[in-house]
Design a protein around this nucleic acid. Structure first.
Lengths: 112, 112
DNA sequence: TAGTGATACCTAGCACTGTAATGTATCATG
DNA sequence: CATGATACATTACAGTGCTAGGTATCACTA
């Protein structure tokens, strides 16, 4: 289980990263992240949908309704130019914190 | 500048990591983290003190008032046994998210 | 036919957290 | 005696995930 703080910090960069692979929709993003994380990251819909709405408002992503293979309506999101640039900013921030943490954790042998 | 979400996610693991190097106090922890991060992480006192109080309540850290070299009273914190164990849990959570992010970011040449 | 589970979207109340601002006090410096 | 660094603390505010609930469609099956 991942703490809510860590979830809050990683949701936006993860959504941006997922969409950089191609457009997708809320329900599929949740599954994509679950699989990509080996089951470690279990997002709830109540968490993600508001996040997507906010990111759309910030114009980081663009939405468009489409009908999927199964005939259901889906709200597909894709990166805007601004969102593409945001990926790099998010990564730099993340790595700044990550490097600080790893430097304090010290050299670590291959963990189990 | 680091977002507040990323700050929230990293404060606890960073405090635990800093204290694993030896006991310290609020004001010094802020400076320690700033230096360790190369100036990227700039914590405010209004953020850290409540965090320390919460961690003390959770019994992750233990506090004791002492008088420093300069004659000022300082509230020194040190890791409890529970806090020492928490470091590993925090690291595992962080790495689970980090690995997912890096796998999506893809292979990246040495960043500047 | 009716019921179940997966798909797919959405929202509201609650508790928690950083931010910004403010306060207190001590000490060294000029 | 004014300033800045040291060193602790609290408060109002806005933002966030969590839990729980809602709506609707479709495939399967009892």
């Amino acid at each position: 289980m991942i703490t809510k703080e860590l979830t809050a910090a990683s949701t936006k960069p993860l959504v941006l990263a997922v969409l950089s692979k191609g457009e997708s929709y809320g329900y599929a993003i949740i599954q994509h992240v679950r699989e990509q994380s080996g089951g470690n990251l279990e997002w709830s819909e109540g968490m993600l949908y508001p996040v997507l709405h906010r990111m759309e408002e910030e114009k980081l992503i663009l939405a468009s309704w489409k009908v999927g293979d199964n005939g259901r309506k889906r709200k597909y999101y894709r990166l805007s130019a601004s969102g593409t640039r945001a990926i790099d900013r998010e990564r730099q921030q993340w790595l700044a914190v990550h490097d600080t943490l790893t430097s304090l954790w010290g050299p670590k042998p291959c963990s189990t």
